[in-house]
C-alpha cells in the first residue's frame, strides 16, 4: 500500500552519490524530507534549485532532506549512478543524493513522479506529500508547499495543507506495473 498521510515508513539504506551507503531514519528530527527525483526529467530540473534552497534554508532548523533517484537506468542511462555522482561532484546537490536502483522503496511508498515530495514529522509520520509548489515555471513560488509544511512542523502545528497534486514525469519503472500518476 502506498504511504498515506499519518503513515510511517521503515528505516532504509541506499547508495549515496557522495560515496558509501546512507541510512535514512525518518524520525528524530524536526522534519525529514524525501524527494523522489532524477537527472533527466525537465520538471525535476525546473524545480531543482528551489529544492536546494529549501535544503540550505532549513538545515539549521533540524530538517534533513534526502533526494533519491529511482529511475530505470537501463532504459534511461542519464539516470544511472555514474551520472548521479557526476552531478553531485559538480555541486548540484545541497544534500544527500541516493539511488534506489531496484525501486523497492519508491514502489512501496507509491512514488509517482519526479519530483514527488514526502515530508515526515519528528515521529516519522508522513505529514505532507505532493509537489514542491504550484508552478514549476514560476521560481517565485519558491517551493512554498514544502516550506509551508516545514514551517508548520517546526512550529508544532499540524500541516495545514498535507497533500497537493503532484506534477512531473512518471517514475521510470523497471517493470511498469504502477498506476497512471495523474489518475
Amino acid at each position: 500500500m502506498p504511504l498515506a498521510i499519518g503513515d510511517s515508513a521503515e528505516t532504509f539504506t541506499l547508495p549515496n552519490a557522495a560515496g558509501g551507503d546512507t541510512t535514512v531514519n525518518l524520525s528524530g528530527h524536526a522534519a525529514t524530507v524525501v524527494i523522489w527525483t532524477c537527472n533527466h526529467c525537465p520538471y525535476a530540473l525546473a524545480w531543482h534549485e528551489r529544492i536546494q534552497s529549501v535544503i540550505r534554508d532549513y538545515a539549521a532548523k533540524d530538517v534533513l532532506v534526502y533526494q533519491i533517484n529511482a529511475n530505470d537506468a537501463e532504459k534511461y542511462p542519464d539516470d544511472d549512478f555514474d551520472h548521479m555522482k557526476t552531478r553531485f561532484e559538480a555541486g548540484d546537490f545541497a544534500g544527500p543524493y541516493l539511488y534506489d536502483e531496484v525501486q523497492d522503496f519508491s514502489k512501496s511508498w507509491g512514488a509517482k513522479v519526479t519530483p514527488d515530495v514526502f515530508v515526515f514529522d519528528t515521529d516519522g509520520r508522513l505529514a505532507y506529500r505532493g509537489a514542491p509548489d504550484s508552478n514549476y515555471e514560476d521560481e517565485s513560488q519558491n517551493a512554498s508547499y514544502v516550506r509551508d509544511a516545514l514551517d508548520d512542523l517546526i512550529a508544532g502545528r499540524p500541516v495545514a495543507v498535507p497533500e497537493t497534486k503532484v506534477r512531473g514525469c512518471s517514475v521510470k519503472w523497471i517493470i511498469n506495473d504502477q498506476p497512471n500518476p495523474y489518475i
Binding site: H40, C41, P42, Y43, L45, A46, K75, Y76, Y136
Partner: peptide, 15 residues
Amino acid sequence: LTCRIYHKSDGKISP
C-alpha cells in the same frame, strides 16, 4: 527514451 528538455527564451528549462 527520455523526457524532452526545452530551453525557454529566458534560459530556463521546461518540459
